[in-house]
Design a protein around this nucleic acid. Structure first.
Lengths: 348, 348
DNA sequence: TTGTACGCGTTATCAA
DNA sequence: TTGATAACGCGTACAA
């Protein structure tokens, strides 16, 4: 067992060919005669050689086949969000042509933890939700000169972004409610800033997260006076809490609630039921994302369907393009309004 | 732009020191006088050098700082499962001391896709849910001679596993129900095999997934005659469907349902409500996992709490140990029974 | 504390 | 179709 692992050179020697020929047999980059091919493969088998060492190959090639995905939050938290999950799926697909894998990275790795933006062998990086905090990460990566793409966030000039028409889309949902005669509307927003607690939003300018701000602006475009309550995360239970706050005051009860995510909307619906309100007869609820909310049946949310996995795929493709030397343009995706059974005419 | 990126040798030259000195400045492995240190850092800054190339470093060191995590399913699907999500969190923690990152890998990468088990620069691999399919992946990895740990699955001799006392734990829940006087019990299981459809389980031997079989055995230990209905996945909606099937026949209605996951249990509870049954007065429901089911309040499931993130952490530590040359032993975790408010005495 | 010398395992290039 | 050569960029004995 003290034996050194066989290298391609050993295999070449055993097969009585040159190292380069052996290399070619494994990479398939150049035609090789069937006879030598066999010899090399047999030699490899005899020596227990299982193929080129990826480390050496990546040094030589200048490519590691790894794309970093940078999250702001705990990995566990990130994957609790169905939208991010879908994006990851799309991303995985998008980088597949590169033959690349996805390396999970957290923004602020604990210091001890070595693997990070600066030390991982990345070919490219995808930042998700670049809201200020990721700024440092961004700089680190850019300094290394590797291609970067940002999903949902502003990364400054020169960094392609994958965006969503949050404001326009949300305005569409609001208009839908307006056309149904709703006037007293409340909004349940995503977090106003990371690590924030839930509560009424008194000052729109205190919102640090782009997505939240944009969607809120879209709703306010139609209902300028609508009150807004910020959740602490995109969860059903958060929507429930927000809904309770909103329905608490009988006199001030809205006839419609615009939630900034489907999960929040599901919670709001539950809060409405709890308060003895029927959906959509007494109160209409809209969501955002267009995901499948497990356990929400028989309700089908009126919502904005966002192309989550397409966003991921686009990011992957952008990265792939940049790796080819092309420069990828920013992309803006649009949501599709979907009418479900959670909105209806405003009660008389 | 045609300029070659600066290397540590360039920096050394610029700073008028030897390459090894410059290297040491970045790695910190050896004391360096403050003066040279400054000179090197300044030179680096001047040249836009951002630190050692990870590819070269990993070749030299023989370590890439990357641990592969191999899933059987779509990434998106995997992360839909809260238990897996927690495990990932624990795993991330477990490998942190290694300074390693997690590379997401799918079992059967599309053929064209180069990067996979065989070509990624992995220091070690963690396979999740090794149920036959992963066999090939396992062989591939083992051939490369890198440490492997398997979570929830049988990988054969020599491969440490991280397991759960599924059968014993499930038996505990069943006993709890028995002690409450329940005799007519139904079971809602996890999928019987991957890609299977939901339906009654007529033949226990048709179950290909270990977890499903073990938990079912535990329930049958106490209630040998309990009927079992397999869901197509661990989702609330699947539990709902299963619950409907189970409660459909008035005459045959059970007084208790053992669900093999918390999400399934949540669905069963919903089905019970739908059928006009009160929980736990008319029907008791137990889950498995001990996760937080978003939106289930005010119910608190009677369930088996499994140490999901500990499992992940243990896998990470096992991998770390093996990388140190030690050989890691298999580990078997136990679940903790938690009584919530979804079980009660059998109705008279 | 700093420098020398070498090899890590591979692959691109070019010539034969 | 095959082979010789030369990097790829770094870390680390070991000597000074």
């Amino acid at each position: 067992m003290s034996m050194r692992r066989a290298t391609i050179a050993d295999v070449a020697r055993e097969a009585a060919v040159s190292p380069s020929t052996a290399s070619v047999v494994f990479s398939g980059k150049t035609p090789v005669s069937e006879a030598t091919r066999r010899r090399v493969l047999d030699a490899a088998a005899a020596l227990g050689y299982t193929g080129p060492d990826p480390r050496a190959a990546s040094l030589r090639r200048g490519r590691s086949g790894i794309v970093g995905v940078v999250f702001e939050e705990h990995l566990g938290t990130a994957f609790l969000d169905p939208v991010k999950t879908l994006m990851m799926d799309g991303l995985a697909e998008g980088v597949a042509p590169l033959g690349a894998g996805l390396l999970l990275l957290r923004d602020q790795e604990p210091i001890s933890s070595g693997s990070s933006l600066t030390t991982a062998p990345l070919d490219a990086a995808v930042l998700i939700g670049c809201s200020g905090l990721l700024r440092e990460s961004l700089d680190a990566v850019r300094a290394r000169g590797i291609p970067v793409v940002v999903i949902e966030g502003d990364a400054g000039a020169g960094v392609p972004r994958i965006e969503l028409d949050n404001r326009e889309a949300q305005r569409q949902a609001a208009s839908h409610l307006a056309s149904l005669g709703h006037a007293k509307v409340a909004i349940v927003t995503l977090p106003a800033r990371s690590g924030w607690e839930r509560g009424w939003i008194l000052d729109d300018t205190a919102i640090m997260i782009d997505v939240t701000r944009e969607r809120l602006a879209g709703a306010h475009d139609v209902f300028p006076d609508a009150v807004a309550y910020a959740a602490a995360g995109s969860f059903i239970d958060e929507g429930l809490a927000a809904g309770r706050a909103i329905f608490a005051d009988h006199a001030a009860r809205p006839t419609a609630v615009i939630a900034q995510s489907d999960l929040l909307a599901a919670g709001v619906i539950r809060a409405a039921e709890e308060a003895g309100l029927r959906v959509p007869e007494d109160v209409s609820v809209t969501g955002f994302d267009g995901i499948v909310v497990d356990g929400l049946a028989p309700f089908v949310l009126t919502t904005l369907v966002q192309p989550a996995s397409e966003k991921g795929r686009a990011a992957g493709q952008a990265v792939a393009a940049m790796l080819e030397g092309a420069d990828a343009a920013s992309l803006r995706f649009t949501c599709t309004f979907r009418e479900g059974n959670t909105t209806g005419p405003a009660p008389a």
